Computed example of a mutant assay.
Amino acid sequence: MNIVTIIVNYRTADLTIDCLRSLEPIANENPGFSVELIDGGSADDSPEQLSQAIEKHHWQSWVHFTQLSDNKGFAGSNNVGIQAALDRSNRPDAIWLLNPDTIVRTGALNSLVETLHADASIGLVGSRLEHRDGEVQISTFRYPTILSELVDSVRCGVISRLFAAYEVSSDPPAQACAVPWVAGASLIIKTEVFDEIGLLDDGYFMYFEEVDFCHRAESAGYSCWYQPESRVVHLVGQSSGVTGQSATLRRRPAYWFDSRRRYFLSKHGVFKTAVADAVWLCGRVTWNVRAVLQRKPAEDPPRLWRDFLSHSIFVRGTG
């Protein structure tokens, strides 16, 4: 098959080079495989490191490198690569979005392709993401709703059990199956899906863009699948710093809240977004009071409640 992989680097040249190295066997065995490598305005020595690595390892035949002058975010930078792939005279059959902080296991792409073409209705397939030691990561999810905001904010066992079916994160299935949406760290998409619904929404600087895309694809009649036989190591949060083990030590960036608000407004409307914001804020107050009374350790990023309020629909409106 003709597959184009999109990788966006942002100040993680070493990780990106490791990712490309893991793709080299695929490129050597598949003439139709190539990579659109985008540097998203890193403003460091990443472009030089990447260019040197491509030349040193003789990857020029399958890696096309583009350097952007500014940071367009995850969606915007990926769209540069996606559009370049779609504009080729020999258009790809599918486009594989791959994070720079990943290492592809043997057979990962084959499993994705086989699943993608198992049925005409399947438009997207995500990989099993795992740590270096093979421990599985959560990468299958339900769509965010008002009730999912309640579960997330209150952190109460009774509430979690009562509304377990609405929790956004879910345990990755043992077998390949359809799911609402998957993490965008390793996600293959039929080219026809882009023809039908367009590119990623670059109104999302980072986060929620894959949720939005999977939702739009579902509305167009395409299903999203999870394939656990496609194994990809994901060094969680290395490219963003928002997720991962050190995430709670950092203040959550404004673009996360803006992306969340954009998603809720686009999928649920103004009234339900207001309800969702109110539910989260009230729920987190309840959790904070419990945490103080029960002397629970701090688990949230600094200023989370205040930052959420300042970016909520009550303060920012629908803009």
Rank of each mutant, 00 (worst) to 15 (best):
M1L: 11
I3V: 15
T5C: 15
T5W: 09
V8E: 00
Y10N: 06
Y10E: 02
R11F: 03
I17F: 01
D18R: 04
L23K: 05
A27W: 04
N28M: 11
E29G: 09
N30V: 03
P31H: 04
G32S: 10
F33H: 13
L37I: 00
D39M: 08
G40I: 07
G40R: 05
G41E: 08
S42A: 06
D44C: 12
S46D: 08
L50W: 01
A53S: 12
E55C: 10
W59Q: 06
H64Q: 09
L68E: 05
S69Q: 10
A75K: 06
N78M: 01
N79W: 00
N79D: 02
V80N: 01
A84N: 02
L86R: 09
D87E: 06
P92D: 05
D93R: 11
D93S: 14
A94I: 00
I95D: 06
W96G: 06
W96N: 04
N99T: 05
P100T: 00
P100Q: 06
D101A: 12
T102K: 01
T102W: 02
G107V: 02
G107I: 04
L112N: 00
L116N: 05
H117I: 08
D119N: 14
A120R: 03
S121N: 08
V125M: 08
G126N: 13
L129R: 02
E130W: 11
H131W: 05
D133P: 02
D133N: 11
G134D: 10
E135I: 08
I138A: 07
Y143N: 09
L147G: 03
S153A: 15
C156M: 07
I159M: 01
A164C: 13
A164E: 15
A164W: 14
A165W: 15
Y166D: 14
P172C: 08
A176W: 00
V179Q: 12
V179F: 05
W181M: 09
W181H: 15
A183I: 08
G184C: 12
V193M: 07
V193F: 01
V193R: 08
V193A: 12
F194V: 07
G198E: 12
D202V: 03
D202P: 03
Y204C: 07
M206G: 04
E210M: 09
E210G: 02
V211Y: 07
F213D: 01
H215S: 12
A217V: 00
E218G: 13
C224D: 04
C224N: 07
P228V: 13
S230M: 03
R231H: 13
V233I: 13
L235E: 07
V236P: 01
G237T: 08
Q238A: 14
G244M: 14
S246V: 13
T248N: 15
L249W: 05
R252N: 10
P253V: 13
P253Y: 09
A254G: 05
A254I: 08
W256L: 09
F257L: 01
R260K: 04
R261A: 02
R262F: 04
F264P: 01
L265K: 05
K267P: 02
H268Q: 15
H268Y: 13
V270I: 15
K272Q: 15
T273E: 12
A278T: 13
V279N: 06
R284V: 10
T286L: 10
W287I: 06
W287T: 11
N288H: 10
V289E: 11
Q294C: 04
K296D: 06
P297D: 14
P297S: 09
D300Y: 15
D300V: 11
L304H: 14
W305N: 07
S310K: 10
S312M: 05
I313K: 07
T318K: 11
